[in-house]
Amino acid sequence: MLKQIQEESFDLLRELIRIQSFSKEEDKTANLIADFLESRSVKTHRKMNNVWAYNKHFDAGKPTLLLNSHHDTVHPNSGYTRNPYDAAVEGDKLFGLGSNDAGGCLVSLIGTFLYYYEQENLKYNICLAATAEEEISGNNGLELVLPDLGELEFAIVGEPTEMHLAIAERGLLVLDCIAHGKAGHAAREEGENAIYKAMKDIEWFKSYQFPKTSEVFGPLKMTVTIINAGSQHNVVPADCTFTVDVRVTDAYTNEEVVEMIKAHVECEVKPRSVRLKPSSIDKNHPVVLAGVALGKETYGSPTTSDQALLSIPSVKCGPGFSGRSHMADEFLYVKEVAEGIEGYVGMLKAVVKSMDYEVRSTNS
């Protein structure tokens, strides 16, 4: 059964690669995913380009774990030397846009879901969600359907990590700041120079250390990246605007960080969004311990994914290598889909406590 699922999942990945699915244009890949599941007697749900399903013996009295990955891709970059949609297998590699990020993860999670779909007496329900707009952190992807998925206990988010476990992910705040002064003539020393006021706050952003430090990431990081003020040489500027990139750790929520910053600076601070939250899962969580028992390492991820939209414990894990994402001539090793399914199934064995399950090596 496992081998058949692995083969069908790999074939599904090749079909997905052949369909253009840029962010906001994922309708055809959503159709394919829904058809693939429905043809295997799985009832699917859909909202816009998001598709989700539950295990056959769903029990409202049990907690639910989420298996999530995305089916949108970035645009192919100018360095491609081959057709991004060929899904060509050459040697031990499958080439194609989205093969690594995150097609391999998605089909491996789909295969894992199908493995457990008909099993009874599971400790957890399983919800599979194939979602859209991850590459642009869009509003019509996972965030759109989270209210429809029901109460969730924890999640596995499929992103290429070589099947190692990202047990924490930094959040992101982009702050637009305005230091307000008063315009005047430079020669007569009139006005209140907004640049000088901004400099004081910029120095604070540069040097301030938040009291709490993340066990995984260390200190929270703030970087001033853009600044603009003035219109002509002899006018004292009334306003100085600057932008701050804040990489939030699991030691704070985004809202806590914004309030602490506002309490320390004089400038006006406006976060563009507080959606991209830091996330983490206890290193002693059963799914983490199960992964470690299979020889996987744990680490903190500096990159942002749909994990940032979840308010439940979550781990980021999947086949593929992050360094291949968005590269020209993107590829996935053929064996990585089979290994991904085997890895996910093995991790969940200890969590869902299926009584009739045995993992067999893909080499056996």
Rank of each mutant, 00 (worst) to 15 (best):
216 V>D: 02
205 F>K: 01
173 L>A: 00
99 S>A: 13
325 S>A: 15
209 Q>V: 01
158 G>A: 10
307 Q>P: 00
128 L>C: 02
8 E>V: 12
79 G>S: 05
274 V>P: 00
254 N>D: 07
226 I>S: 00
357 Y>R: 14
230 G>Q: 12
257 V>H: 04
78 S>E: 14
113 F>V: 09
8 E>Y: 01
338 A>M: 06
3 K>A: 14
114 L>S: 08
126 I>R: 07
234 N>F: 10
336 E>W: 13
140 N>G: 08
15 E>Q: 12
71 H>L: 08
25 E>F: 05
179 A>D: 05
11 D>Y: 14
60 A>E: 11
14 R>T: 09
317 C>G: 01
60 A>K: 12
338 A>N: 09
346 G>F: 06
291 G>I: 08
341 I>C: 00
38 E>I: 08
257 V>F: 07
165 L>K: 03
140 N>Y: 15
306 D>H: 02
68 N>Q: 14
71 H>V: 03
7 E>H: 13
1 M>G: 10
298 T>V: 10
18 R>A: 09
340 G>K: 05
288 V>R: 04
150 G>A: 08
198 A>Q: 11
168 A>K: 03
117 Y>P: 09
293 A>C: 04
164 H>F: 12
206 K>H: 15
192 E>S: 03
357 Y>L: 15
290 A>C: 09
135 E>R: 09
63 P>C: 07
321 F>V: 15
162 E>C: 13
276 L>A: 03
319 P>C: 10
267 C>W: 01
95 F>R: 02
206 K>P: 02
270 K>I: 11
103 G>L: 03
191 G>F: 05
282 D>E: 13
87 A>N: 02
65 L>V: 11
234 N>K: 13
263 A>G: 12
50 N>Y: 02
209 Q>R: 11
82 R>K: 11
92 D>L: 06
123 K>Y: 10
41 S>H: 08
283 K>G: 09
308 A>F: 00
113 F>M: 07
7 E>R: 14
